[in-house]
Computed example of a mutant assay.
Amino acid sequence: MVEKIKNVVVFVRDIPKARLFYREWLGLEPGGETEYMMEFLPGQGTTLGVSLAMHEAAQKLVGRHTGVSFSVKGLEELCQSLTEKGVRFTEPLERTPWGKMAVVADPDGNEFALVEM
Rank of each mutant, 00 (worst) to 15 (best):
Tyr22Gln: 05
Leu52Trp: 13
Thr83Trp: 05
Leu82Val: 10
Arg19Gly: 00
Met38Asp: 13
Ile15Thr: 05
Glu91Ile: 03
Glu29Met: 11
Gly67Thr: 04
Cys79Ala: 09
Lys6Cys: 04
His55Arg: 14
Ala113Arg: 05
Gly86Tyr: 11
Glu56Asp: 15
Lys17Trp: 12
Asp108His: 13
Ala113Gln: 06
Gly67Pro: 01
Glu77Met: 01
Glu24Leu: 08
Val103Ala: 08
Phe112Ala: 01
Val50Tyr: 01
Thr47Lys: 09
Val8Arg: 02
Ala53His: 07
Ser51Pro: 00
Glu3Asp: 12
Asp14Leu: 10
Gly27Lys: 07
Val12Glu: 04
Leu61Gln: 14
Arg23Ser: 12
Glu84Ser: 13
Trp25Cys: 02
Val104Pro: 00
Ile5Ala: 15
Gly45Pro: 08
Gly74Phe: 05
Trp98Val: 08
Leu26Arg: 01
Thr90Glu: 13
Val87Tyr: 03
Gly109Phe: 11
Met37Lys: 09
Val9Trp: 00
Lys73Gln: 13
Arg23Lys: 15
Leu93Tyr: 05
Glu24Ala: 14
Ser71Ala: 14
Gln59Tyr: 02
Glu76Gly: 06
Ala102Arg: 02
Ala57Pro: 00
Ala57Asn: 10
Pro107His: 11
Pro16Trp: 14
Met101Gln: 14
Glu24Arg: 13
Val9Tyr: 00
Gly32Asn: 11
Gly99Met: 11
Gly49Asp: 10
Gly45Asp: 12
Gln80Trp: 03
Glu116Cys: 01
Val104Cys: 03
Met101Ile: 13
Lys17Ser: 15
Leu26Gly: 00
Thr34Met: 09
Met1Ile: 12
Thr83Cys: 04
Val68Pro: 03
Glu94Phe: 08
Val10Thr: 15
Tyr22Leu: 03
Val104Phe: 04
Pro107Lys: 05
Ala58Phe: 11
Gly49Asn: 13
Asp106Lys: 01
Val103Met: 12
Asp108Arg: 06
Met54Asp: 03
Gly109Tyr: 11
Glu111Ala: 13
Gly67Trp: 05
Gly32Glu: 14
Tyr36Pro: 00
Leu82Met: 10
Glu84His: 12
Glu111Tyr: 04
Leu26Val: 08
Lys4Ile: 01
Leu75Glu: 02
His65Trp: 05
Gly86Val: 09
Gly74Arg: 05
Ala113Pro: 01
Glu116Ala: 02
Glu111Lys: 10
Val12Tyr: 04
Met37Trp: 15
Leu82Gln: 03
Val10Arg: 00
Asn7Lys: 10
Pro30Gln: 07
Gly63Trp: 07
Met101His: 03
Trp98Gln: 04
Leu61Pro: 02
Gly31Thr: 08
Ala113Asp: 14
Glu39Ile: 11
Phe89His: 07
Phe70Ala: 02
Leu114Asp: 00
Val104Asn: 01
Val103Asp: 00
Met1Phe: 03
Pro107Gly: 10
Met1Ser: 15
Arg64Gly: 10
Asn110Arg: 09
Gly99Leu: 05
Phe21Asp: 02
Leu82Glu: 01
Gly109Gln: 06
Ala53Glu: 10
Ile15Pro: 01
Met1Gln: 07
Thr46Cys: 14
Trp98Gly: 01
Val115Leu: 11
Pro97Glu: 10
Val8Pro: 00
Met54Gln: 13
Glu29Val: 13
Ala18Gln: 03
His65Asn: 15
Lys85Asn: 09
Thr34Gly: 12
Arg88Gln: 12
Met38Cys: 11
